[in-house]
Design a protein around this nucleic acid. Structure first.
Lengths: 329, 329
DNA sequence: TGACCGAACTAATGCGCATTAGCAGGACGA
DNA sequence: TCGTCCTGCTAATGCGCATTAGTTCGGTCA
């Protein structure tokens, strides 16, 4: 002991020698000296209890944070999150205790959740359980979702990728190359990201005045007369390319295939798809920044980051035969 | 409120209706009902403060947990750690707030460390700052190091890879193929893992009665007359193979090259090295298990896991010319 | 009828800190 | 000499829980 009160130590530790409270330089130095000698560190638990914050950001994922298969779709997000947390001087709490039950998905509020130990939380996953989402809202837990989310009993704070204009731009590019019959292959619903892509496709088709088909699966694709395919995910694109090649079609000479973003499903390919890049790392960074903002000023931030178009080599001008047969419809 | 005291709620929440304390089933059900309706969750901070544990394991790494380059050397460890933490019902706290200063390494006890929020800690990194290590010991913070560590003012709890017998086995295998002059290329010190590999090499050489050279770098390797090279790390192995090929040597016909474990440095190669596999995932798992044991029963566990030999294709019988010229020394 | 006991709770305390109100002591002006 | 103000510090309180030592309220038994 230095002979001073616990209060004084607390004040010195927190540098609270401002207006209201005063500590003489000699006392401060003496306390600091002892702190240095003993290596005293304030108990974070008690500190958090009194201060009502821990400088900890929670990260909730529906999948394993460290996938056994190596880096995956979510890895770049996490890179950004870690970078930004480091800058913010925050630690990251991974909710690994939320076990993945038999056949069930990980849930946020399972049993005694430690989520409130975190000042706020970043949510990651293609889809997020609606119940979890509304629970977060009603409980008033600060959070930011990575990926746009529809309202869940109230506006959801998020940072997403701005798919519609991106997909639309691809449609326009295809139209400029003479394509007049385009197909979108994929569910177009379920995850918001899918819906947004389909929306961009639909908007683009309407804006350019070309024909647009929405196929849930690739079945019937090759009888549809479409000269360019928009694959909802990279994995879809890979599958379609293989199907096309199996039919003796050359990509992109006979059929252009665009991949709309990376794939959440594991897939390896060396095809240089035309499409766009989801700014995953930036989204991760931005999510942490927005979370910090929410904690400081509140609010419900909603941001969409632009996707960068990828030139690739799977988009070519419409084949001549199709260009002539196009008007026949 | 249910009309009962905070104590009762606490007892119900923790299922403490055992011998000492009694709660009538009706009261319990009533409390549980209200808990379910309101979605009450105990504040983990306060709980931790009173209970002196948080069910959180800290993970300290000297590098970024999520490397920008994708999965790296440390990834498999983390996979195992996450798996085991999930089973143990613990969350993981990543100390991202310990910034990497200009040119400095990450330090565990930088400023207001949140390390004590974790019940214990897993340490990851090729080398660990000796000061950090002894500080952990003197502060009595439960931890387990992934990778063997020499004492730091006391025995260090660890789970490591058992390099010496593994390397020794490789030496014996090479000897069985006729090699009589072997070279170890690498520092052989610094990290414990390097020292252990060199020790295994030295032991193996002594046991088989062959000649063993220790070269710090690959300089002079090709004039040494060695017919088989033990590369300390994968990256070293790759470099040596390239040097050998540049000299017109065929691997492994003219020169056998063994790689001692994966590389902590980023390197990509498709060479199918003969060597061994570091059981990284298992080590991660085991570290968490040992940490749990330390928390429950104390002690200083020290374990070495066996490495699996990898057949590969860079080890061949000694070349004839060398076999004959071998005895000339 | 009073002593005794067990069942079913609750009051009180402490965890280690941050924070607020307040206190001792000296300087200073009237 | 007394009141006032400022400086430099501390006592006390609360954060939300777990835990321990009661306390109350029927019975039960002698």
């Amino acid at each position: 002991m230095t002979g001073v009160s616990q209060t004084t130590v607390s004040l010195v530790l927190n540098g609270r020698a401002d207006g209201e409270v005063r500590i003489s330089p000699e006392t401060r130095d003496r306390v600091l000296q002892v702190i240095r000698e003993t290596g005293y560190v304030a108990d974070p638990a008690a500190r958090g209890l009194a201060e009502r914050r821990n400088r900890i950001y929670g990260v909730f994922t529906y999948e394993a944070v460290f996938p056994a298969e190596g880096a995956d779709f979510y890895h770049p997000f996490l890179v950004g999150i870690e970078e930004c947390a480091e800058e913010a001087g925050c630690d990251l709490l991974l909710f690994t205790s939320a076990k993945v039950e038999q056949g069930e998905r990980r849930r946020i509020f399972s049993g005694e959740s430690r989520i409130r130990l975190a000042d706020g939380c970043v949510l990651l996953g293609r889809t997020i359980d609606p119940d979890d989402l509304s629970r977060l809202l009603t409980d008033g837990i600060p959070f930011v979702s990575v990926g746009r989310r529809d309202d869940a009993g109230g506006p959801v704070p998020y940072v997403g990728a701005d798919y519609p204009p991106t997909v639309r731009a691809l449609v326009e590019r295809a139209a400029a190359l003479g394509h007049r019959r385009m197909a979108y292959v994929g569910a177009g619903k379920g995850a918001e990201s899918f819906a947004d892509r389909l929306r961009g496709f639909t908007e683009g088709v309407a804006a350019t005045g070309v024909e647009g088909l929405h196929l849930t699966t690739a079945d019937g694709l090759f009888d549809s007369g479409a000269t360019v395919v928009f694959a909802e995910e990279l994995a879809d694109g890979v599958a379609i390319v293989e199907m096309a090649r199996a039919r003796g079609l050359d990509v992109p000479r006979d059929l252009s295939i665009l991949a709309l973003g990376a794939s959440t499903r594991p897939v390896s390919t060396d095809i240089d798809f035309t499409g766009f890049r989801i700014p995953r790392r930036e989204m991760g960074r931005r999510a942490v920044e927005l979370l910090t903002g929410v904690l400081e000023r509140g609010g419900v931030p909603q941001e969409l980051l632009a996707c960068e178009l990828v030139e690739g080599s799977t988009l070519a001008p419409v084949p001549d035969t199709d260009r002539t047969s196009g008007p026949r419809t």
